[in-house]
């Protein structure tokens, strides 16, 4: 109980920086709208526009320019039945620096695969992903993944796991430990510093995984259903914490989720995917004011409309994906 109150207390601090996030919002408004927002039909023209850019990879470097560009990426897996399985087909997506982008889609549509490609863990069958204009050839500390499977180091305690990244980056032990303890408290695990992963519940492991990645300050967070295993209460709390961190640090976040609520609540942009093969169906800009407060937003008719519209689209894309 105490830990939670402490957590809230420290979370209030970022609201003092409202000016920062306001200017961030202004910048976001000034940014050219993504033409893809008009839907799949319009997508064709966008692709050709992109491909000309692909020939000339020097991109304009505005302060709020694209940080990640995914350029006509396809991923084909060889299945054990010796058949090619198209997991991703011709995905193009641009993510602006500091944006919070969610990827939403039915199970198996290739959300994780797309995230792995941006992370540099998987190289796409065709197409390319770029970070700040540089082709992504492998993983790096500028892109921090939070995996669906947690992937904690079982031989390290909670504290050892969270300290691992900063220590690897050469942060002094005392400093890394202090930062890590603060992060552990933030994710609500104060008192569990010396527990081993096998002694934690699924939801607790997921929170450690989040803290471990935040600890080494990646520029881009790649989160694969990070709140999937949490109870509703903790989930809401961590969503708020994540938003606070994001509003303070303006990290770019690529966030995979199954939950329409969550996607609308958190994101600047929601990317709807459809299945078999995995395609981008639509990109929806979420034009809701920030900082967002859950209790206000739930009553906001604009929020409700986004949720209802996207849920309907989700159902359609699930059906559309079913036969093929």
């Amino acid at each position: 109980m105490k830990a939670r109150q402490n957590g809230r207390g420290s979370n209030d601090a970022p609201h003092g920086c409202a000016n920062d996030s306001l200017s961030g919002r202004l910048l976001a408004k000034l940014m050219p709208l993504n033409p893809r927002a008009s839907g799949t039909e319009g997508g064709m023209t966008v692709v050709s526009a992109r491909s000309s850019e692909w020939v000339r990879p020097v991109t304009q470097q505005d302060p709020a320019s694209a940080i990640i560009e995914i350029d006509r990426v396809s991923q084909v897996f060889q299945t054990s039945a010796r058949k090619d399985h198209v997991a991703l087909s011709d995905i193009s997506l641009t993510i602006e620096e500091g944006a919070f982008v969610s990827i939403l889609g039915p199970s198996g549509c290739g959300k994780s695969t797309l995230l792995y490609i941006v992370g540099g863990f998987v190289s796409p069958t065709s197409g390319a992903a770029r970070m700040k204009g540089q082709a992504i050839t492998g993983p790096g500390p500028d892109r921090g993944p939070v995996f669906q499977e947690f992937a904690l180091f079982p031989w390290k305690t909670v504290l050892g796991n969270v300290m691992y990244g900063p220590r690897q980056q050469g942060v002094r032990a005392a400093e890394a430990e202090a930062q890590s303890r603060a992060l552990i408290e933030m994710v609500g695990l104060k008192g569990y510093e010396n527990f081993y992963p096998k002694e934690l519940s699924g939801g607790m492991k997921q929170r450690v995984a989040l803290a471990r990645t935040l600890a080494y300050h990646p520029e881009v967070l790649l989160m694969d259903e990070p709140f999937g295993a949490l109870d509703a209460h903790t989930r809401t709390r961590l969503q708020n914490d994540l938003l606070n961190i994001w509003e303070r640090d303006r990290k770019t976040v690529l966030f995979v989720t199954h939950s329409v609520d969550e996607a609308v609540f958190l994101s600047d942009k929601v990317v709807m995917m459809s299945k078999s093969p995995g395609r981008i169906r639509q990109v929806i800009d979420i034009d809701l004011p920030r900082p967002r407060r859950r209790n206000e937003l739930l009553l906001d008719p604009r929020y409700q409309k986004y949720v209802v519209d996207i849920e309907r689209m989700f159902d359609e894309s699930d059906q559309a994906g079913a036969p093929a």
Partner: peptide
């Protein structure tokens, strides 16, 4: 050894 564990390490710069 779980692949994602190695990926996590690679992302930390190992």
């Amino acid at each position: 050894v779980e692949e994602k564990m190695l990926w996590s390490g690679a992302a930390m710069g190992l």
